[in-house]
């Protein structure tokens, strides 16, 4: 058991957890931040994606203690009132079906657009990043369109 502090969505949380406990389970079971999802537990499906210092990471395989003191963002902290361009695009194009993977899709897409702020984002760039996040409902076509729409919105906002 270790005690440490995690900075999540701008707030500090005192955590007591096993050294190897992944961030995912600290978020979900200790802090009740259930927007980040468990899908595979081995870093293959991407339902658990969060940002650590702006980088998308699989929270299901990342020991929580390894990111103490770092800035962690979950879907709950991505924006106030779902105003992030990616979230607005997701609503505009009615992307989610069951919605379970969408926290992972949205967090991965938001990080991608942060790193590639062009509104001419190519399918190859989208694929290389979004291949990390699986969707059994099959929303991929809309996710692709959603990323392009969000890129445009971000350009217009800036």
């Amino acid at each position: 058991m270790a005690q440490f502090t995690l900075r999540i969505n701008g707030e500090d949380h005192k955590i007591e957890a096993a050294n190897d406990m992944p961030l995912l389970w600290v978020l979900r079971d200790k802090l009740n931040l259930t927007g980040t999802k468990f899908g595979c537990g081995v870093g293959t499906c991407g339902a658990c994606m969060v940002h650590v210092e702006g980088e998308p990471v699989h929270s299901c395989t990342l020991p929580a203690i390894a990111v103490k003191g770092k800035n962690i963002t979950t879907i709950e902290g991505l924006s106030a009132n779902s105003r992030h361009a990616v979230q607005r695009a997701w609503v505009a194009l009615q992307i989610p079906q069951c919605g379970y993977c969408q926290s992972g899709q949205i967090m991965t897409a938001a990080a991608l657009l942060e790193q590639n702020p062009s509104n001419q984002i190519s399918n190859q760039i989208i694929d290389s990043s979004m291949n990390q996040v699986l969707c059994r409902c099959g929303t991929y076509q809309r996710v692709r369109a959603g990323i392009k729409l969000a890129a445009k919105m971000m350009k217009e906002d800036s």
């Binding site: 979900r28 009740n32 931040l33 259930t34 927007g35 999802k37 468990f38 879907i75 609503v91 919605g99």
Partner: peptide, 17 residues
């Protein structure tokens, strides 16, 4: 059901607390 599915607030079975 879409708005709750873009901000983590949608409650699935696994999220019951």
């Amino acid at each position: 059901d879409i708005p709750g599915k873009v901000n983590g607030s949608a409650q699935f079975g696994i999220d019951v607390r």
